[in-house]
Computed example of a mutant assay.
Amino acid sequence: MAQEMTPTQLQAWRALYRADTLLFTHIENTLRARLKMSYFEHEVLRILDAAGGRLRMAPLAEQLMISRSGATRLVGKLEEKDGYVARRNTPEDRRATWAELTDDGRKALKEAQPVVEAVVATFFADHVSNEDLRAASRILDVLADANPNDDGFDCGL
C-alpha cells in the first residue's frame, strides 16, 4: 500500500497541478481562438520541425506521450483537414509510416510559435526568476526521469 502524502508533498502536488492546468488552458484557448489549432496539434508540428521535418509515427507518439492510435488520429486530422502533415511510407520499410511537415504546416507553426511564447511568458516565465526557472526545470526533469513513459502510458488522447 502506498504511503500517505505529507502536507508538504500534497501542497507541492496541488501547486504543480494547478499551475499546469491553468497554463495549459491558457495556451489551448488562445491557440484555438487565434489559429483554430489545439496545443497537441501545435506540438506535432513543433516535434516534426525539430526532427528535421519528418519522423516515424511511433517516436512521434512517444514524444507526445500519447498512444500510437492517438498519434495516428491526430496526424490524420492534421493531414486531412488542415494539410499541415503528410503521411508517407518508404520503399525500404513499407510497414513504417512517417509523418512529414508540409509547407502549410511550417507556415502554421511559424504563426503559432509567437502565440505560444507570448502565453508562456505572460502566464509563467514573466512571474518567476531565471534562478527559480532553472530550479523548476531540474525538479521537473527529476520527476519525468523517475516516471518514464515506457509502459504504454497515454495522457488521454
Rank of each mutant, 00 (worst) to 15 (best):
F24A: 13
I139R: 07
V115E: 03
Y84D: 02
F153Q: 15
E28I: 02
G70D: 04
L74W: 02
V44D: 08
I47V: 11
G105P: 02
Q63H: 12
V75M: 05
S69P: 11
N147P: 05
A12S: 14
A15N: 12
V116I: 03
K107A: 14
A135K: 12
V116Q: 03
V85Y: 01
V116H: 03
P59F: 06
A61H: 00
T90Y: 13
G52R: 00
E28K: 06
P114E: 02
D145Y: 11
L64M: 00
N130F: 14
E92F: 12
E43T: 04
N147E: 06
I139T: 11
A108P: 05
A58K: 14
F40M: 13
A108F: 09
C155T: 15
K110Q: 05
E92M: 10
L48S: 05
D132M: 12
L64Y: 00
A51P: 10
R56Q: 14
T97N: 03
Y84I: 02
V142A: 08
T8A: 15
S129P: 12
L74G: 02
D126L: 03
F40W: 13
L22C: 10
W13G: 09
V115K: 04
L109E: 04
A51D: 03
K36T: 10
D141Q: 10
A15Q: 14
L16S: 09
R34K: 15
A125V: 04
D150V: 07
D145K: 01
G53L: 01
T21S: 07
E100N: 00
D132T: 10
M57E: 00
E100Q: 00
G156K: 08
N130G: 08
I66E: 01
A50V: 02
L10N: 02
A51C: 01
R94K: 14
V119L: 05
A19Q: 11
H42Q: 11
Q3V: 07
R32L: 15
T90W: 12
K36R: 11
L22Q: 13
D82T: 10
T25E: 13
G83K: 09
I66C: 06
P7A: 00
R34S: 11
W98M: 01
N89W: 06
A58N: 12
L78K: 08
I27L: 02
K110D: 08
M5V: 14
K77F: 10
D20G: 13
D49I: 01
K36V: 09
T8N: 12
L133A: 00
P148T: 00
V116Y: 06
A12M: 15
R95Y: 14
D141E: 13
A50S: 09
L109P: 08
K77S: 11
M1T: 13
P114Y: 05
F124Y: 11
R88T: 07
H26V: 14
Y39G: 09
P59W: 06
A112M: 02
W98V: 05
A135W: 11
T21P: 05
N29H: 10
V115D: 06
N130D: 13
D82M: 11
V75T: 07
S137T: 14
S38H: 12
M5L: 15
I139V: 09
L64N: 01
T30L: 00
F124M: 07
E41Y: 09
L78S: 03
R54C: 11
F123W: 06
M57Y: 00
W13F: 13
A86T: 04
R14A: 14
L10M: 07
A71S: 03
I47E: 02
L31A: 06
L16A: 07
P7L: 00
T8Q: 15
L35E: 06
T90M: 03
